[in-house]
Design a protein around this nucleic acid. Sequence first.
DNA 1: GAGCACTGC
Length: 711
Amino acid sequence: MPSMAQGHGGVRNSTENSNDSYARTQNMLQQRKSLPIASVEKQLADEVRKNGILIIVGETGSGKTTQLPQFLFQAGFCRDGKVIGITQPRRVAAVTVAKRVAEESRVQLGQRVGCSIRFDDRTSAATKIKYMTDGLLLREALLYPYLSRYSVDIVYEAHERTVHTYVLLGLLKKVQKARSKSGHDHSIADNKKTSNGLPSDNENGAQFNGIFKQRQGGKLPPLKLIIMSASLDARVFSEYFSGARTVHIQGRQFPVDILYTLYPETDYLDAALITIFQIHLEEGHGDILVFLTGQEEIESVERLVQERLQQLPEPIRKLITVPIFSSLPSEQQMRVFAPAAAGFRKVILATNIAETSVTIPGIKYVIDPGFVKARSYDPSKGMESLNVVPISKAQALQRSGRAGREGPGKCFRLYPESEFEKLEDSTTPEIKRCNLSNVILQLKALGVDDIIGFDFLEKPSRASIIKSLEQLFLLGALTDDCKLSDPVGQQMSRLPLDPIYSKALIVASQFNCLEEMLITVAMLSVESIFYAPREKLEEARTAMKCFASPEGDHLTLINVYRTSNEFLEKRKMEITKEKNEKLLRKWCKENFINSRSLRQARDVHSQIRGHAEQMGLCVSSCGDDMLQFRRCLAASFFLNAALRQPEGTYRALASGQVVQIHPSSVLFRAKPECIIFNELVQTNNKYIRNITRIDYLWLTELAPQFYTMQN
DNA sequence: GAGCACTGC
């Protein structure tokens, strides 16, 4: 395998200062030229020209992310109006890299270089280098199954093994085969599916709904694929693409000293605490990054550090703690980027958000207890769990790498080296740990009917596939012979929602309460709307009571949404959009609402409202008839109904599991007899969340196919 | 009595 050098220069933070633009551009050009990747520009372009599929192994977030697409552009891969697509799992990364490349190319973002993520499309007819999330390209494939506008697709961060990456790789492989065939015969332009099961692209962008128009021109240029992985197990990708050529690009990461404990630690929090102070008192300057599993741990370590600091003599108390985890409001997340006051050392207490999503400058020391909170899924119970589990070797490597981004660093692994050797090489791919309903619906819509036979990089279990097929069937998305149903399944596959929520919109249009359901589903689709910091728990509770509905969480969420809407409506005529946003953030803060979540819910709402209208669903409101809306909830979420048991726990009717109402629910104390819920997650207990009171008899009335009178 | 991380024309 050839080896190529590579420069160092992360571009992953969303918090770049905008310096003087000219100086910056000059600086950047110089930096580009000095990148060792620049010397292999020709070589890389040649490799792409010679190989249909190329696997490139190299350090993530470095030169290659920005440089390769530019090389390919210069090498002529955008001739004939073709576009170079670059996909990656995260929105923020897609936008920041695109911005950087636009700047390097001295064009405005949205011109030759553009990016597209959900809710934010910055591309135009002139866009030749298009950065996007992989989920977005999957959505695009629903409309244009041959992805014919792309000459190349570069899949970044393949080692992260996300569900979207796996589905995309399977799809791209198929598309590539189909497109290479189109060069030789014209079967592809037939009015029916090709042997690959792929319909032709409908070039005028009209809805693709199973009737395939003849593609003008017939012949498609081949699609080049480049798979980028930061891990060394490139062989998996190479084998998947029938022995595709692999190229290595050397990184220039600074050396990181790895230190292990002599013996296993019984209490990793205590060990972390000791290590923090050991570094603070004995090591040179530089900030510390500690990987913990969740908010609770972070808050408790934060308290312990403060306590212990008070026992130190005044002059060496110069240590500040900064927490970061995903549900923390953005303003507080930003604190990790602010340098500590002169003479102070920063200790960042983070979840694995700091492993890939957020790159924090100034880190010299990493403390890695070796655990992560991971989601898993039990298809037989239809239940997700969040468990603290040991990390993989790849994760340990990723974590220690965080200490060597700006200079040599140290990583303190709070376990013996022998334990490290016992870790799995890489993390179990997400596709083996999640509910597959969404993936299956999407594949069916892409014309892939044989899900069990689909060429996944790693196959999910048969049981998991069957469970999700069953669920989709019960929702009416699939016919008896497991084909996408028309119109319900077709409509559901168009909506960027969980299948059960998509179905709820269709049901709601029949119950004349689609207005209410659009809001509900948007609010359920985002992270927790309520934010209750520990130190202001009582205040937060009082604030939440203003919105609480005795009927349950769904109506409570509608109340929040509508109140925020009224607040905005009142001020709409008076001020600018930016001021509006600012006012809304202030309103959120006062009401203990997570403004990022509400913002997202408003975006989702407007998007799915558009979809609903396009589908011709009847968008009407049931007004004050909340009985009607609750009946609609029962009809939509009948698969998630539960009955109270004498002890106050609940029995989920579909699976027979004993569950409890999550303490965040407005119905936590009321404990009505019969409820529907939206989420079942096992943490310390089996908790159900987002709950509404219903009448048991509605189930037999509204979902007779599932509930007989005996049930 | 409690919330790992991502993502969707």
